[in-house]
Write a protein that binds this DNA or RNA. Structure first.
Lengths: 329, 329
DNA sequence: GATGAAAATGTAAACGATTTCATTTCACAA
DNA sequence: TTGTGAAATGAAATCGTTTACATTTTCATC
């Protein structure tokens, strides 16, 4: 494991010159460049990021904060972030918080200790106070989930509108009794999605029925099953369900089928996110597609600009309703 | 952003003493310790990993190489690795290779440049030559997928035996015409799983029928669908399918249902891996459970020991057949 | 109060790069 | 040949820690 000194020695030049060759900087004579390159080759030299990072006061690592890696919703976003980051010579540290403040704190510490240059937060349960405080000193971007009005740039979609369109689709194919499977309204997106749901109903003069709205603690398959069980027990059973995540919707599918009912003939189902699996279920799931890959690249670009000291503005991206078997048979 | 010098100055001690307090090293008088802690508090000091890492010639980062993040098979393994790593103050860099040598090379470079202290490779398509070469200088562990006999420690399960048991289960519930949906036999695990399949058949005096063995390029849902289409077209149609991944099996499920057939009455299906989704399908999938979380923790522990210069031995963990609706109705 | 060993603290040299500023080399014109 | 300015190169500081070694302090003992 040679270092820059040894390369310099072998090439008969100073370390400064080696560094210049390494970084393609300034002007270096073709002849010296050749000598240096020969030395690098011969010694099998690889510049150490440790030295370089210390000198440059940067780590070239960005943190991605997600609640759990098991939620496929994050896949494409992560890919987007990764590719953009890679193209700018950043690496990504994927951090699962399990929505636990202790784990979150471990990762926040990583940026305080300069192990990371910035954070892309996708955890809806993130501690907003700490995040705000951190944002005063470090580069932070919120992706997909965001606390509004806290001065941290975000990239997201218009949840209210997306939700509105999903419900409108159900109404247009004839449904009037539409249940909403929402997550806890402490999350902004949950409040927005309920508003979209209600707007669609009101617009078609369908009264909003509180009994048709269900809240779940998490957005997983089991929560979807449990909520669906309750829905199926209602005396005036809904003919359609709009779930705010695909996993919830897939749980609903399973439960409806288990009850001997048919999707969409007895109960239609709409999900949200268009995760890969939404296409693998029986029947395939109608869902709202978020431009996840794009969100990732945009978030990464914003973060890198922030790291470079630029000011960046929040971005709202478009979305799309993907109609499949779970509503149209 | 204060540094250790400023803390030392304010506390009226030397940087060495501050460092000692920081690391809970040696003996420091309670009084000086207090002074130092006051200074740290007051200056809001956080030790920089950049300096520390350079000095210690380590990055405290480990690389995880996976072909793609979209395969849920890796979730639990990653969680296992992450938790073990975290407990030892390591962070993990999740690296998607897309099974492309170029991307792989980017990540290999990260360890050559000391940005990472070691690698846990889970990519079956990894370039074994490069890996071997790298293993001479750096800490490397293979997890789940491994090239045998290349001198790199691995943790895995007994694929042949697991496969044998899965097929035996199908035979025991009355099947004789059992198709195998395997991946390319350039992978060791694919060869092993075919051997287990054949052993089970031979043991029950069922001839091995080459027409019943299908190879897929990847282990995804679409490949499962395509292979199943072919299987359904066979004149003497199998009554059961053993797929070497859950995603393949889920593709098969979808295709069987689409053909108007019933699982398991017309065709029984067994998968491999017990990913979360194997429980969410209709019907739920019979599958071979790998102890993924355990594999992760074991791999991480092995890697850390390797980093510390110890010699470590390969490990073979147990597995379990999980019988669900796709074979027993 | 002097002594000496043990305990606490300090000094300064790493770790491996980048970069500012000073110095040398070079090409060319006088 | 000499002088000049530009181009190429080098010397040394710097980034923020840790730690081997040197030095000072402490304190029980005589």
């Amino acid at each position: 494991m040679a270092n820059i000194q040894q390369v310099a020695k072998r090439a008969g030049v100073s370390v400064a010159t080696v560094s210049r060759v390494l970084n393609g900087h300034d002007k270096v004579t073709a002849k010296t460049k050749l000598k240096v390159e020969e030395a690098i080759q011969h010694l099998n030299y690889e510049p150490s990021m440790l030295g370089r990072n210390l000198r440059n006061s940067e780590s070239r690592i960005v943190l991605i904060l997600i609640p759990t890696i098991s939620n496929p919703f994050y896949f494409e976003i992560i890919k987007g972030i990764e590719n953009m980051a890679l193209s700018q010579n950043y690496s990504i540290l994927l951090c699962e918080t399990d929505s636990k403040p202790e784990k979150e704190e471990i990762y926040f510490d990583l940026v305080r200790k300069k192990m990371a240059d910035g954070i892309i937060s996708m955890d809806p349960a993130v501690n907003v106070e700490t995040l705000k405080e951190l944002a005063e000193h470090y580069a932070i971007i919120q992706c997909s989930e965001y606390g509004g009005g806290i001065g941290i740039p975000y990239v997201t979609i218009d949840s209210e509108e997306a939700s509105y369109r999903a419900v409108k689709h159900l109404i247009q194919i004839g449904h009037k009794k539409i249940a909403l499977m929402n997550s806890d309204e402490k999350f902004l997106y949950a409040r927005e999605r309920r508003m979209g749901y209600e707007r669609a109903l009101r617009e078609h003069e369908i009264p909003v029925n509180g009994d048709y709205i269900f809240y779940t603690q998490e957005l997983g398959f089991e929560q979807g099953q449990m909520a669906m069980k309750k829905i199926l027990r209602l005396e005036d059973r809904p003919t359609a369900v709009f779930a705010v995540s695909d996993l919830l919707a897939i749980g609903a599918l399973k439960e409806i089928t288990a009850a001997g009912l048919h999707v969409p003939n007895d109960v239609a189902v709409v999900g949200f996110d268009k995760i890969d699996f939404s296409n693998m279920t029986n029947p395939a799931l109608t869902t709202v597609a978020q431009p996840m890959y794009k969100m990732g690249t945009v978030a990464a670009r914003m973060l890198i600009e922030k790291i470079q000291g630029k000011t960046v503005d929040s971005v709202v991206l478009g979305h799309e309703l993907v109609i499949r078997e779970s509503t149209t048979g």
